[in-house]
């Protein structure tokens, strides 16, 4: 009996599928045989392991080198930071502070160099006593004068704001003691002071002390031909 077209197609499909399976099987077998005959050089694996070990060793050495450089850099960095931190803190002197003539300068607003100056004066009692003695004598003298109002007088000296060792400093002029009549100056306007600018200009200022020798105010003196430097 002759198979129908449909049956032939089915048979052919089954045949193909069987043939494919056989081929797949043959392929696997042939490839297995083929690979089993491939023999790499006996020394190849050992050579590769030697190269790999060498490369890893080199890498490790490199990373150790990097590590030591890194450690050195860190140590250097820490040393620099430490040196910076060990240095005395320098407060900026060029900050603007409010100053009112004959008004006590708040402690926190005082620039570093003024605080230092006050500390120096406090340490040197003789200087303070001398200042006070001088003040007393002057007051005593003035008591005899027309002012006769010594309670309202404040001792002052003229000084120059100058740069000294990269810091601002007040350098007192010789023989520049004078007295300021307190009530007359009380209404003076507040000014902003840029100490760096003043020191660059060697600005002359009148330093006003209270009766205890404490600086209470600085009065800028307008520069004129005669007052660019300390008056002689």
């Amino acid at each position: 009996m002759k198979p129908t077209t449909h049956e032939s197609k089915l048979n052919s499909k089954v045949d193909n599928s069987e043939s494919d399976e056989q081929f797949e099987y043959a392929l696997l077998r042939l490839q297995a045989d083929n690979e089993s005959q491939i023999k790499p050089d006996k020394n190849l694996t050992e050579n590769i392991i030697r190269s790999v070990n060498y490369k890893v060793e080199q890498n490790n050495k490199k990373s150790v080198n990097w590590g030591s450089w890194l450690a050195l850099s860190c140590a250097l960095f820490i040393a620099v930071i430490s040196v910076k931190m060990l240095q005395p803190e320098i407060k900026p002197n060029n900050s603007y502070i409010e100053l009112s003539q004959l008004q006590v300068i708040p402690q926190q607003s005082k620039p570093e160099f003024i605080i230092k100056l006050e500390q120096d004066i406090a340490k040197n009692r003789a200087q303070v006593i001398a200042l006070n003695q001088n003040l007393k004598e002057e007051l005593a003298r003035l008591d005899q004068t027309y002012l006769n109002r010594s309670d309202n007088l404040l001792y002052s000296r003229i000084a120059q704001v100058m740069q000294s060792k990269n810091e601002n400093a007040l350098v007192f002029c010789k023989n520049s003691q004078s007295f300021i009549y307190q009530p007359a100056a009380q209404n003076s306007r507040q000014v902003q002071v840029n100490w760096d600018k003043l020191s660059r200009q060697n600005q002359l200022v009148q330093v006003v002390f209270d009766k205890n020798g404490k600086i209470v105010a600085l009065v800028a003196i307008e520069p004129t031909e005669n007052t660019v430097t300390c008056p002689v």
Partner: peptide, 28 residues
């Protein structure tokens, strides 16, 4: 760990099959 002995293990495990794959497309 950067310990080369781990790589040695891998070489022993895979080198032969890798070689067989490459050699069939090139030469020994």
């Amino acid at each position: 760990t950067q310990d080369a002995s781990w790589l040695e293990t891998l070489v022993h495990q895979h080198q032969n099959s890798l070689y067989k794959f490459i050699v069939q497309q090139s030469n020994p």
